[in-house]
Amino acid sequence: MLLIPCPYCGDRPEIEFRGGGEAHIARPSDPQTIDDQAWAEFLFYRTNPKGLMAERWNHAHGCQRWFNALRDTVSDRILESYKMGEKPIGGGRA
């Protein structure tokens, strides 16, 4: 079980959280103007990297806040977590 650093509550066990998939995929500001391919990429295309990945987490059974974390998908080490709208300090794709 992961130990996830919620930026608001500190280290908490994984069972308090819900994963939200890859981070930093902005919803298009005017979805109606983009073509089907671009919309499909927003909806479904993910990088699924081996290594560092920025991903979204929701402290669902805690403060209910969404935040981002940098996790190594090989080792499951979490390098850092940061609030929505912030950038990670090191390493990952921001």
Partner: peptide, 10 residues
């Protein structure tokens, strides 16, 4: 959770 997601992140 769906509502919170959009409210907080989008």
């Amino acid at each position: 959770a769906h509502m919170e997601d959009y409210l907080q992140t989008e």
